[in-house]
């Protein structure tokens, strides 16, 4: 396993590499700047390491507004251009209901119940993979 923390600048969200998959775990309340930095980090990491999948675990995220929704959609679109699939995992029910009400249905993104399910979806039945280290955003 290859721990590849891409932490350019002030990005407090670690991007972890598991073989040919990038794993990102979002926690708590993200600043707009942090989210934009993350988007840039992920795109750079995909281009550099030629991974085939990106899993974004948002089970620790309490709200997704149109800004974070746009960031997720753009990560998905950028990843696709670089031949990688993006799966958003672990969205909470209250967040899902709110996003639907807001009109954000993320049509271009795949979704999964958990990180394990996302890895399975990406063709890596490697459910025993360790989870990304939890880190509080600054």
């Amino acid at each position: 396993m290859n721990d590849d923390f891409s932490r350019t600048g002030a990005a407090p969200v670690p991007v972890l590499r598991l073989g040919d998959i990038l794993l990102v775990t979002l926690q708590g309340d993200l600043h707009d700047g942090t989210a934009e930095q993350l988007q840039q980090d992920i795109v750079e990491a995909i281009a550099r390491s030629r991974v085939t999948g990106v899993v974004i675990d948002i089970s620790g995220v309490e709200i997704v507004d149109s800004f974070l929704g746009r960031v997720l959609a753009e990560i998905g679109a950028n990843a696709r251009l670089l031949a990688a699939q993006t799966v958003v995992a672990g969205m909470r029910p209250a967040v899902a209901i709110t996003m639907v009400e807001l009109g954000l249905t993320l049509p271009g993104l795949r979704t999964a119940l958990s990180t394990e399910a996302a890895l399975e979806l990406l063709g890596r039945p490697d459910a025993a993979a360790p989870r990304a280290p939890r880190q509080e955003p600054r």
């Binding site: 672990g90 969205m91 029910p93 899902a96 209901i97 639907v100 249905t105 999964a112 399910a117």
Partner: peptide, 12 residues
């Protein structure tokens, strides 16, 4: 339809 969309967002 909203329920269907929300369930999909959750990954089911």
């Amino acid at each position: 339809m909203k329920t269907v969309a929300a369930v999909r967002l959750m990954g089911a």
